[in-house]
Design a protein around this nucleic acid. Structure first.
Lengths: 241, 241
DNA sequence: TTTAAACTATGATTTAGATCACATGTCAAT
DNA sequence: ATTGACATGTGATCTAAATCATAGTTTAAA
């Protein structure tokens, strides 16, 4: 696991502005604000496995993910790691601590080569205070997160098969890519990684995947899961065995 | 379980205004907006056990809890109920669906005699759009929720004893009342109810509580839990056995 | 003031899934 | 090509907690 070796490029404010504008999040801002942000924003890149921030860090910034994917996770007192969220290009990371000024509530790690634009609290908050549309956009983001996380709570009291099915369906919605045989999840996830998403051990997960593979419900295509029978998977996820 | 029999009083706009002003949430609004809300807000009351809304309902309103306590919960496909949140006087309920315009993501039930002020989407959203401070206040509420819910996700992959301890500590923070023997949780919760909060069966919970009672860590005082040794409970919750 | 309904307590049994153990497979680096 | 670091695949065993069963207790209603 490489660590710390974040590199920073030094692109022009113009470059940064166009990156900002490409980000869905930014559409709620007017041109001046975008300019202001572009001036102060830093562009950072992280290799796969690199830590972006850690639980407990002071949270004075928010990241717009330009490229790649960020895993939000935390390690319990019993030394189990659980993934709270996977955040892809076009979404934001670290907004909670930025907004409430408290510590980071979880760890953030790049799981691919990832580029982010870092917005500082002092640059961003004034914009929210001036621009209600931006604040409302932030509210939408948080509502979305909350719905997802509540769903995860529900998932965690379900039996494994049902939970796995629901997680796969959700991953397919988030990272899915339609191919001829079905929906491919465009993420290279090891089984232990997937285990951390579902909150189970690698072994149990492996057995379940094997079964579904035999039944033709899923398949593996160069290290990526392809869902071949989405309907069946959804049925399992609904508990209709 | 009584149902549906909501009664509505018809207080004056003045009455409603003073209720609004008493609510911590409202401090971010200016006087005109408070007046406007007071005119349209409805005061509703619910008996213990009454349903306020159900998962799947259209979410066109938000409730300010004036008095009492509301349980936010959901029933899984496997027919298990889990409590996502307990919301007491001074807090808001149902803000997510109001903000994102989607369906209610969970059921809301009064667990005591409860009074709420109902704010409609069409009255409230324009205020957010005009008043960034109110929007930022909403952001804080959501951040808070998100931190709580993420903690619950963490809790759910812990072993029961650790999880119970953490839940009790959290309930003590939220509903605690310092008495001579310790901190009393000011809620009458049956063990099955507590089970739904911790995501376990009544039986397992019962055994754990019995053990802690013998050890003098907790006690029962007229149906309410008193934490007599908070330090011990916190240590257990941290996994330091 | 008894009768029902809900809640608490605890033992016995079962079970889902974790843990352990080890074989096999893959792939990048030397 | 060989080594080593990881990832996958599967049996065997163990265990935490669910489920089942049943008795006692408190609360509220008739």
């Amino acid at each position: 696991m490489p660590d710390g070796s974040k590199e920073t490029r030094t692109p022009s404010a113009q470059d940064k502005k166009s990156l900002l504008l490409a980000h869905t999040f930014i559409e709620s801002l007017d041109d001046e604000d975008v300019d202001r942000l572009a001036q102060h924003a830093r562009l950072m890149t992280y290799g796969s496995g690199e830590t972006i921030f850690r639980k407990g860090d002071p949270g004075i910034s928010m990241l717009l993910v330009i490229k790649g994917c960020v895993r939000i996770s935390t390690i319990t007192s019993e030394a189990k790691e659980i993934v709270l969220n996977l955040i892809q290009a076009g979404e934001v990371v670290g907004e909670i601590a930025l907004l409430d000024g408290k510590e980071r509530s979880a760890d953030a790690t790049a799981i691919q080569f990832t580029e982010v634009l870092v917005l500082e609290r002092r640059d961003f908050l004034p914009i929210l205070e001036r621009n209600p549309r931006a604040a409302i956009r932030m509210l939408e983001v948080l509502c979305d997160r909350l719905r997802r996380t509540s769903e995860q709570v529900e998932d965690l009291i379900l039996t494994n098969a049902v939970r796995f099915a629901r997680v796969l369906v959700r991953l397919a919605e988030q990272f899915g890519n339609e191919v001829d045989v079905g929906t491919q999840i465009d993420l290279r996830l090891s089984q232990s990684e997937l285990g951390k998403i579902t909150g189970t051990t690698r072994e149990t997960l492996n057995r379940q995947l094997a079964e579904w593979r035999e039944q033709g419900i899923i398949a593996l295509e160069s290290g990526r899961i392809v869902i071949r029978n989405m309907r069946a998977l959804k049925r399992i996820g609904d508990g209709d065995r």
